[in-house]
Amino acid sequence: MTAPRHKILVTGADLAVQALRVLQDYDVIYAGALPTEQQLIALVKAHDPIGIIVRYGRITRRVIEHARSLKVISKHGSGIDTIDVVAAKDNGVVVRAAAGANAAAVAEHALALLLACAKSISRLNARMHDGHWDKANHKNIELRSKTIGLIGLGSIGRKMAAMCRAMELNVIAYDPFVTQEDNLALVPLEQIWSDADFISLHCPLTDDNRNLISMNTLAACRQGVILINTARGGLVDEAALLAAVRSGQVFAAGLDSFAKEPPDKNHAFFGEPQIILSPHIGGVTGQAYIDMGVAAAENLLRSLVDSGIHERKEATA
Score class of each variant (00 low, 15 high):
residue 71 K to Q: 09
residue 166 A to D: 14
residue 158 R to Y: 12
residue 56 Y to G: 07
residue 171 V to D: 10
residue 155 S to A: 12
residue 144 R to S: 09
residue 86 V to I: 04
residue 121 I to A: 10
residue 55 R to N: 01
residue 69 S to Q: 06
residue 49 P to L: 10
residue 181 E to R: 15
residue 168 E to P: 03
residue 179 T to I: 05
residue 134 D to V: 11
residue 95 V to W: 05
residue 73 I to L: 02
residue 185 A to V: 12
residue 40 L to A: 02
residue 100 G to T: 08
residue 127 R to D: 15
residue 157 G to R: 04
residue 179 T to A: 09
residue 135 K to E: 14
residue 82 T to G: 11
residue 46 A to F: 01
residue 53 I to K: 13
residue 179 T to D: 07
residue 172 I to M: 04
residue 69 S to G: 03
residue 179 T to K: 10
residue 115 L to W: 11
residue 123 R to H: 00
residue 111 L to H: 09
residue 178 V to A: 02
residue 100 G to P: 08
residue 76 H to C: 07
residue 113 L to R: 09
residue 136 A to F: 06
residue 148 I to E: 05
residue 169 L to E: 00
residue 68 R to G: 00
residue 108 E to Y: 09
residue 170 N to Q: 15
residue 125 N to G: 05
residue 47 H to W: 07
residue 85 V to S: 01
residue 54 V to G: 05
residue 48 D to I: 06
residue 50 I to F: 12
residue 66 H to E: 15
residue 136 A to G: 08
residue 157 G to C: 03
residue 61 R to D: 08
residue 100 G to D: 09
residue 94 V to P: 04
residue 116 A to E: 13
residue 97 A to T: 01
residue 48 D to K: 13
residue 122 S to C: 10
residue 143 L to R: 05
residue 123 R to S: 01
residue 88 A to G: 11
residue 77 G to V: 13
residue 124 L to H: 12
residue 160 M to Q: 13
residue 101 A to W: 12
residue 121 I to P: 09
residue 98 A to E: 01
residue 76 H to Q: 08
residue 118 A to Q: 00
residue 142 E to Q: 15
residue 83 I to R: 01
residue 133 W to K: 09
residue 117 C to Y: 02
residue 103 A to D: 03
residue 67 A to G: 11
residue 118 A to T: 01
residue 142 E to G: 14
residue 49 P to M: 08
residue 104 A to H: 15
residue 172 I to G: 01
residue 67 A to D: 09
residue 87 A to K: 07
residue 49 P to Y: 06
residue 108 E to D: 14
residue 142 E to P: 10
residue 93 V to N: 01
residue 120 S to F: 11
residue 47 H to N: 11
residue 52 I to W: 10
residue 120 S to H: 14
residue 142 E to F: 12
residue 122 S to L: 09
residue 64 I to A: 03
residue 100 G to M: 05
residue 179 T to S: 13
residue 85 V to E: 05
residue 130 D to N: 11
residue 44 V to G: 12
residue 147 T to V: 03
residue 171 V to K: 12
residue 78 S to W: 10
residue 181 E to K: 15
residue 165 R to M: 13
residue 116 A to K: 08
residue 175 D to P: 12
residue 105 A to I: 05
residue 40 L to G: 01
residue 115 L to Q: 12
residue 68 R to W: 00
residue 59 I to F: 04
residue 57 G to Y: 02
residue 73 I to V: 12
residue 177 F to N: 15
residue 53 I to L: 14
residue 75 K to Y: 07
residue 137 N to D: 14
residue 82 T to W: 03
residue 168 E to K: 10
residue 99 A to Q: 07
residue 138 H to T: 14
residue 70 L to D: 02
residue 104 A to T: 15
residue 166 A to G: 15
residue 181 E to D: 13
residue 176 P to C: 03
residue 122 S to N: 12
residue 118 A to H: 00
residue 108 E to P: 06
